[in-house]
Protein backbone atom coordinates (compact mmCIF):
# COMPACT_ATOMS: atom_id res chain seq x y z
CA UNK A 1 0.00 0.00 0.00
CA UNK A 2 1.28 3.40 -0.93
CA UNK A 3 2.11 6.05 1.61
CA UNK A 4 -0.05 9.14 2.19
CA UNK A 5 1.65 12.52 2.11
CA UNK A 6 -0.05 15.66 3.41
CA UNK A 7 0.36 18.92 1.55
CA UNK A 8 -0.82 22.29 2.81
CA UNK A 9 -0.08 25.96 2.24
CA UNK A 10 1.81 28.50 4.31
CA UNK A 11 -1.32 30.06 5.79
CA UNK A 12 -1.52 26.98 8.05
CA UNK A 13 1.74 28.41 9.45
CA UNK A 14 2.97 25.15 10.98
CA UNK A 15 6.29 25.11 12.76
CA UNK A 16 9.31 23.56 11.08
CA UNK A 17 9.54 20.89 13.75
CA UNK A 18 5.95 19.76 13.18
CA UNK A 19 6.40 19.72 9.40
CA UNK A 20 9.42 17.50 9.73
CA UNK A 21 7.88 15.14 12.21
CA UNK A 22 4.97 14.37 9.91
CA UNK A 23 6.70 14.93 6.59
CA UNK A 24 4.20 17.61 5.63
CA UNK A 25 4.95 19.53 2.42
CA UNK A 26 4.09 23.23 2.26
CA UNK A 27 3.37 25.40 -0.76
CA UNK A 28 3.76 29.14 -0.15
CA UNK A 29 1.45 32.04 -0.92
CA UNK A 30 2.99 35.45 -1.57
CA UNK A 31 2.82 39.00 -0.29
CA UNK A 32 3.54 41.53 -3.03
CA UNK A 33 4.98 44.92 -2.30
CA UNK A 34 5.88 47.04 -5.32
CA UNK A 35 9.56 46.58 -4.61
CA UNK A 36 9.63 42.99 -3.51
CA UNK A 37 7.63 39.82 -3.23
CA UNK A 38 7.80 38.00 0.07
CA UNK A 39 7.16 34.30 0.36
CA UNK A 40 4.62 33.73 3.09
CA UNK A 41 6.26 32.23 6.14
CA UNK A 42 9.75 33.26 5.14
CA UNK A 43 9.74 36.17 7.54
CA UNK A 44 8.87 36.33 11.22
CA UNK A 45 5.70 38.10 12.30
CA UNK A 46 7.24 40.91 14.30
CA UNK A 47 9.42 41.89 11.36
CA UNK A 48 6.56 41.54 8.95
CA UNK A 49 4.16 43.64 11.01
CA UNK A 50 6.77 46.34 11.35
CA UNK A 51 7.04 46.39 7.58
CA UNK A 52 3.28 46.26 7.05
CA UNK A 53 2.48 49.05 9.48
CA UNK A 54 5.21 51.31 8.17
CA UNK A 55 4.69 50.71 4.51
CA UNK A 56 2.93 53.52 2.68
CA UNK A 57 1.41 51.00 0.31
CA UNK A 58 -1.06 48.22 0.89
CA UNK A 59 0.55 45.00 -0.25
CA UNK A 60 -1.45 42.50 -2.22
CA UNK A 61 -1.30 38.77 -1.71
CA UNK A 62 -1.36 36.02 -4.26
CA UNK A 63 -2.09 32.35 -4.35
CA UNK A 64 0.51 29.77 -5.38
CA UNK A 65 0.56 29.10 -9.10
CA UNK A 66 -0.61 25.72 -10.40
CA UNK A 67 3.05 25.21 -11.28
CA UNK A 68 4.06 25.60 -7.63
CA UNK A 69 1.66 22.82 -6.68
CA UNK A 70 2.47 20.67 -9.73
CA UNK A 71 6.15 20.54 -8.76
CA UNK A 72 5.34 19.31 -5.26
CA UNK A 73 2.64 16.89 -6.38
CA UNK A 74 4.78 15.40 -9.17
CA UNK A 75 7.72 14.76 -6.86
CA UNK A 76 5.54 13.06 -4.25
CA UNK A 77 3.62 10.90 -6.70
CA UNK A 78 6.79 9.87 -8.56
CA UNK A 79 8.05 8.42 -5.30
CA UNK A 80 4.94 6.30 -5.07
CA UNK A 81 3.00 8.46 -2.60
CA UNK A 82 -0.65 9.38 -2.52
CA UNK A 83 -1.38 13.05 -1.77
CA UNK A 84 -3.97 14.77 0.40
CA UNK A 85 -3.68 18.55 -0.02
CA UNK A 86 -5.58 20.56 2.61
CA UNK A 87 -5.71 24.23 1.74
CA UNK A 88 -6.91 27.70 2.63
CA UNK A 89 -10.65 28.26 2.05
CA UNK A 90 -11.78 28.80 -1.51
CA UNK A 91 -14.03 31.52 -0.07
CA UNK A 92 -11.07 33.81 0.46
CA UNK A 93 -8.31 32.53 -1.84
CA UNK A 94 -7.82 30.92 -5.23
CA UNK A 95 -5.30 28.48 -3.78
CA UNK A 96 -7.65 25.50 -3.99
CA UNK A 97 -8.24 26.25 -7.67
CA UNK A 98 -4.50 26.33 -8.36
CA UNK A 99 -4.08 23.00 -6.60
CA UNK A 100 -6.95 21.40 -8.54
CA UNK A 101 -5.45 22.54 -11.81
CA UNK A 102 -2.08 21.17 -10.74
CA UNK A 103 -3.62 17.85 -9.76
CA UNK A 104 -5.21 17.51 -13.20
CA UNK A 105 -1.83 18.32 -14.77
CA UNK A 106 -0.03 15.66 -12.78
CA UNK A 107 -1.71 12.58 -11.31
CA UNK A 108 -5.38 13.21 -10.56
CA UNK A 109 -5.95 9.59 -9.56
CA UNK A 110 -3.47 9.90 -6.70
CA UNK A 111 -4.29 13.34 -5.33
CA UNK A 112 -7.16 14.58 -3.18
CA UNK A 113 -7.70 18.31 -2.81
CA UNK A 114 -9.53 19.32 0.37
CA UNK A 115 -10.98 22.82 0.69
CA UNK A 116 -10.57 23.51 4.41
CA UNK A 117 -13.18 26.33 4.37
CA UNK A 118 -10.83 27.88 6.89
CA UNK A 119 -7.26 29.00 7.28
CA UNK A 120 -4.54 29.67 9.83
CA UNK A 121 -4.99 27.72 13.07
CA UNK A 122 -8.21 26.16 11.81
CA UNK A 123 -6.44 24.83 8.75
CA UNK A 124 -3.59 23.69 10.98
CA UNK A 125 -5.97 21.63 13.14
CA UNK A 126 -7.19 19.81 10.04
CA UNK A 127 -3.68 19.29 8.67
CA UNK A 128 -2.47 17.85 11.97
CA UNK A 129 -5.42 15.50 12.22
CA UNK A 130 -4.77 14.31 8.68
CA UNK A 131 -1.05 13.88 9.32
CA UNK A 132 -1.75 11.76 12.40
CA UNK A 133 -4.21 9.64 10.47
CA UNK A 134 -1.65 9.16 7.68
CA UNK A 135 0.93 7.99 10.22
CA UNK A 136 -1.60 5.52 11.52
CA UNK A 137 -1.80 4.10 8.04
CA UNK A 138 -5.24 5.35 7.10
CA UNK A 139 -6.11 5.39 3.41
CA UNK A 140 -6.60 8.52 1.32
CA UNK A 141 -10.36 7.91 1.24
CA UNK A 142 -10.50 7.43 5.01
CA UNK A 143 -8.53 10.61 5.57
CA UNK A 144 -10.65 12.74 3.24
CA UNK A 145 -13.83 11.36 4.81
CA UNK A 146 -12.49 12.17 8.27
CA UNK A 147 -11.58 15.68 7.13
CA UNK A 148 -15.11 16.32 5.85
CA UNK A 149 -16.40 15.30 9.26
CA UNK A 150 -13.88 17.52 11.08
CA UNK A 151 -14.63 20.50 8.85
CA UNK A 152 -18.18 20.47 10.11
CA UNK A 153 -16.90 20.61 13.69
CA UNK A 154 -14.20 23.18 13.15
CA UNK A 155 -14.85 26.62 14.58
CA UNK A 156 -12.75 29.71 13.94
CA UNK A 157 -13.59 32.97 15.70
CA UNK A 158 -11.50 36.10 15.69
CA UNK A 159 -11.63 39.75 16.66
CA UNK A 160 -9.58 42.11 14.55
CA UNK A 161 -8.47 45.21 16.36
CA UNK A 162 -9.75 47.31 13.51
CA UNK A 163 -11.54 46.76 10.22
CA UNK A 164 -8.90 48.75 8.33
CA UNK A 165 -7.04 45.76 6.94
CA UNK A 166 -10.11 43.72 6.05
CA UNK A 167 -11.46 46.72 4.24
CA UNK A 168 -8.28 47.16 2.21
CA UNK A 169 -8.02 43.48 1.39
CA UNK A 170 -11.64 43.19 0.35
CA UNK A 171 -11.99 39.51 1.26
CA UNK A 172 -14.54 39.94 3.94
CA UNK A 173 -17.76 38.32 2.82
CA UNK A 174 -20.64 39.26 5.11
CA UNK A 175 -18.35 41.45 7.15
CA UNK A 176 -18.77 43.97 4.35
CA UNK A 177 -21.84 45.25 6.16
CA UNK A 178 -19.66 46.42 9.04
CA UNK A 179 -17.69 48.91 7.06
CA UNK A 180 -20.12 51.80 7.20
CA UNK A 181 -20.69 51.40 10.94
CA UNK A 182 -20.55 54.80 12.60
CA UNK A 183 -20.41 53.55 16.15
CA UNK A 184 -17.13 52.09 17.28
CA UNK A 185 -17.60 48.34 17.46
CA UNK A 186 -15.55 45.21 17.93
CA UNK A 187 -16.83 42.70 15.44
CA UNK A 188 -16.53 39.01 16.24
CA UNK A 189 -15.89 37.35 12.91
CA UNK A 190 -15.94 33.70 12.01
CA UNK A 191 -15.65 31.33 9.12
CA UNK A 192 -19.02 30.24 7.87
CA UNK A 193 -19.25 28.25 4.66
CA UNK A 194 -15.64 29.16 3.96
CA UNK A 195 -16.30 32.89 4.08
CA UNK A 196 -15.67 35.49 6.72
CA UNK A 197 -18.97 36.45 8.30
CA UNK A 198 -20.02 38.55 11.26
CA UNK A 199 -20.78 36.41 14.29
CA UNK A 200 -21.59 39.25 16.67
CA UNK A 201 -20.92 42.89 17.33
CA UNK A 202 -19.97 44.27 20.72
CA UNK A 203 -18.58 47.59 21.84
CA UNK A 204 -15.40 46.71 23.74
CA UNK A 205 -12.51 44.28 23.41
CA UNK A 206 -13.19 42.86 26.87
CA UNK A 207 -16.72 41.91 25.83
CA UNK A 208 -15.48 40.57 22.53
CA UNK A 209 -13.04 38.23 24.26
CA UNK A 210 -15.72 37.10 26.69
CA UNK A 211 -17.98 36.43 23.72
CA UNK A 212 -15.30 34.22 22.12
CA UNK A 213 -14.91 32.19 25.27
CA UNK A 214 -18.68 31.89 25.57
CA UNK A 215 -18.63 29.87 22.34
CA UNK A 216 -16.36 27.21 23.84
CA UNK A 217 -17.86 23.91 24.96
CA UNK A 218 -18.49 23.63 28.69
CA UNK A 219 -15.98 20.80 29.16
CA UNK A 220 -12.49 20.31 27.82
CA UNK A 221 -13.11 16.67 26.96
CA UNK A 222 -12.02 15.93 23.40
CA UNK A 223 -11.35 19.60 22.86
CA UNK A 224 -8.43 20.64 20.68
CA UNK A 225 -7.91 24.37 20.75
CA UNK A 226 -5.49 26.97 19.45
CA UNK A 227 -5.45 30.62 20.35
CA UNK A 228 -4.89 32.81 17.33
CA UNK A 229 -2.68 35.80 17.60
CA UNK A 230 -1.09 38.52 15.58
CA UNK A 231 0.32 41.49 17.46
CA UNK A 232 -2.70 41.56 19.75
CA UNK A 233 -0.67 42.73 22.75
CA UNK A 234 -2.23 42.01 26.12
CA UNK A 235 -5.46 40.76 24.57
CA UNK A 236 -4.10 37.29 23.89
CA UNK A 237 -3.10 36.97 27.55
CA UNK A 238 -6.56 38.16 28.63
CA UNK A 239 -8.10 35.59 26.33
CA UNK A 240 -5.88 32.89 27.81
CA UNK A 241 -6.91 33.87 31.34
CA UNK A 242 -10.58 33.74 30.41
CA UNK A 243 -10.23 30.28 28.86
CA UNK A 244 -8.33 29.02 31.91
CA UNK A 245 -11.16 30.20 34.14
CA UNK A 246 -13.68 28.32 32.05
CA UNK A 247 -11.66 25.22 31.24
CA UNK A 248 -8.88 24.79 33.80
CA UNK A 249 -6.14 22.41 32.77
CA UNK A 250 -6.77 22.61 29.03
CA UNK A 251 -3.45 22.90 27.15
CA UNK A 252 -3.38 26.33 25.53
CA UNK A 253 -1.22 26.81 22.51
CA UNK A 254 -0.96 30.21 20.94
CA UNK A 255 -0.82 30.09 17.21
CA UNK A 256 0.63 32.94 15.18
CA UNK A 257 -0.96 34.05 11.94
CA UNK A 258 0.99 34.00 8.72
CA UNK A 259 1.94 37.26 6.97
CA UNK A 260 -0.54 36.64 4.14
CA UNK A 261 -3.46 36.38 6.57
CA UNK A 262 -2.10 39.19 8.73
CA UNK A 263 -2.09 41.41 5.64
CA UNK A 264 -5.83 40.98 5.40
CA UNK A 265 -6.76 41.02 9.06
CA UNK A 266 -4.15 43.14 10.83
CA UNK A 267 -3.64 42.77 14.55
CA UNK A 268 -6.04 40.12 15.76
CA UNK A 269 -6.89 37.78 18.62
CA UNK A 270 -9.05 34.72 18.24
CA UNK A 271 -9.47 31.05 18.80
CA UNK A 272 -10.11 27.94 16.82
CA UNK A 273 -11.20 24.56 18.09
CA UNK A 274 -12.56 21.16 17.30
CA UNK A 275 -14.60 19.21 19.78
CA UNK A 276 -13.61 15.66 18.90
CA UNK A 277 -15.88 12.70 19.21
CA UNK A 278 -14.84 9.04 19.30
CA UNK A 279 -13.85 8.67 15.68
CA UNK A 280 -11.75 11.82 15.50
CA UNK A 281 -9.01 11.41 18.03
CA UNK A 282 -7.50 14.51 19.63
CA UNK A 283 -3.82 14.90 19.04
CA UNK A 284 -0.75 16.31 20.64
Amino acid sequence: MSKIKIVTDTTAFLEEEVLERYGIKVVPLYVNFTEETIKDGSIDNATYFHKLMNSPEVPSTSQPSPGDFAKVFARLVEKGNEVVAILISSGISGTVESARTAAKMTAPAHISIVDSLSTSGGLALLVLAAARAAQEGKSREEITAMLENLKSKLKVFFVPESLKFLKKGGRIGGAQALLGTLLQIKPILYFSGGKIEVFDRVRTMKKALARLVHELPTTGEGLELFLLNAESGENIQRLKDLIRQRLPGLPLKTYEISPVIATHVGPVAGLTFIKHTQNTVPGV
Binding site: L183, I185, S192, E197, V198, F199, D200, R201, V202, R203
Partner: peptide, 11 residues
Protein backbone atom coordinates in the same frame (compact mmCIF):
# COMPACT_ATOMS: atom_id res chain seq x y z
CA UNK B 1 -31.88 50.31 21.00
CA UNK B 2 -28.30 50.55 19.81
CA UNK B 3 -27.14 47.87 22.22
CA UNK B 4 -29.94 45.56 21.07
CA UNK B 5 -29.26 46.24 17.43
CA UNK B 6 -25.63 45.17 17.71
CA UNK B 7 -26.88 41.66 18.43
CA UNK B 8 -28.85 41.48 15.18
CA UNK B 9 -27.76 38.40 13.30
CA UNK B 10 -29.43 37.59 10.00
CA UNK B 11 -28.30 33.99 10.24
Amino acid sequence: GLAALLALNQL
